[in-house]
Simulated scan of single mutants.
Amino acid sequence: MKMVDEVVLKNATETAWSVYRARHPDVDPQDNRRCLLERHLPRRGEERESDTEELAGFGIAYLHRFFGDGC
């Protein structure tokens, strides 16, 4: 399996988390969902060639799919 560049992964996580929190301002910055996001994105990046924007998109979709608006 291919490893995801750490900088790409960090930037994608920050972007996805920022977008999610902007849409859900009641979510605490240290919410457990961030930890789940941090575990999810490396697996996505290993599955295929990914860049920051693509991984961030996967992260945003993941958060919305599993936590939606009713979190």
Score class of each variant (00 low, 15 high):
residue 33 R to V: 04
residue 5 D to H: 01
residue 56 A to F: 04
residue 21 R to M: 15
residue 21 R to E: 11
residue 71 C to T: 07
residue 24 H to I: 07
residue 1 M to A: 13
residue 30 Q to W: 05
residue 2 K to W: 05
residue 26 D to W: 14
residue 57 G to M: 00
residue 69 D to M: 08
residue 27 V to Q: 06
residue 10 K to A: 14
residue 3 M to Y: 05
residue 9 L to D: 08
residue 11 N to D: 15
residue 41 L to F: 11
residue 69 D to E: 13
residue 23 R to W: 09
residue 19 V to P: 03
residue 4 V to F: 04
residue 65 R to W: 06
residue 56 A to I: 05
residue 15 T to K: 14
residue 46 E to Q: 15
residue 16 A to Y: 00
residue 65 R to D: 11
residue 65 R to F: 13
residue 34 R to N: 07
residue 12 A to P: 07
residue 42 P to H: 02
residue 30 Q to D: 15
residue 26 D to F: 14
residue 44 R to N: 06
residue 68 G to E: 09
residue 10 K to C: 12
residue 22 A to C: 07
residue 38 E to V: 04
residue 48 R to G: 11
residue 15 T to V: 13
residue 22 A to L: 14
residue 70 G to L: 11
residue 68 G to W: 06
residue 11 N to K: 10
residue 43 R to W: 03
residue 56 A to H: 01
residue 3 M to H: 10
residue 6 E to M: 03
residue 8 V to G: 00
residue 19 V to G: 08
residue 49 E to V: 11
residue 34 R to A: 01
residue 57 G to C: 07
residue 4 V to T: 15
residue 69 D to T: 10
residue 44 R to K: 14
residue 6 E to L: 04
residue 48 R to V: 12
residue 71 C to L: 08
residue 46 E to R: 15
residue 12 A to S: 08
residue 50 S to L: 11
residue 7 V to W: 03
residue 8 V to D: 12
residue 55 L to I: 02
residue 29 P to H: 05
residue 22 A to S: 09
residue 3 M to F: 10
residue 47 E to S: 12
residue 16 A to Q: 01
residue 12 A to T: 05
residue 44 R to P: 11
residue 59 G to A: 11
residue 8 V to A: 12
residue 65 R to A: 08
residue 30 Q to T: 05
residue 47 E to M: 12
residue 7 V to A: 05
residue 25 P to E: 13
residue 13 T to A: 13
residue 11 N to G: 01
residue 37 L to T: 01
residue 15 T to W: 13
residue 4 V to C: 11
residue 71 C to F: 04
residue 21 R to P: 02
residue 62 Y to M: 12
residue 29 P to R: 14
residue 12 A to G: 15
residue 40 H to R: 12
residue 12 A to K: 02
residue 55 L to V: 01
residue 59 G to Y: 01
residue 13 T to G: 00
residue 31 D to S: 14
residue 23 R to F: 09
residue 20 Y to K: 10
residue 43 R to D: 10
residue 62 Y to S: 10
residue 9 L to S: 09
residue 48 R to I: 02
residue 49 E to T: 13
residue 42 P to I: 03
residue 32 N to P: 00
residue 51 D to V: 10
residue 14 E to N: 15
residue 40 H to S: 01
residue 47 E to P: 04
residue 35 C to A: 12
residue 60 I to T: 12
residue 29 P to E: 14
residue 43 R to L: 15
residue 43 R to K: 13
residue 66 F to A: 03
residue 48 R to H: 05
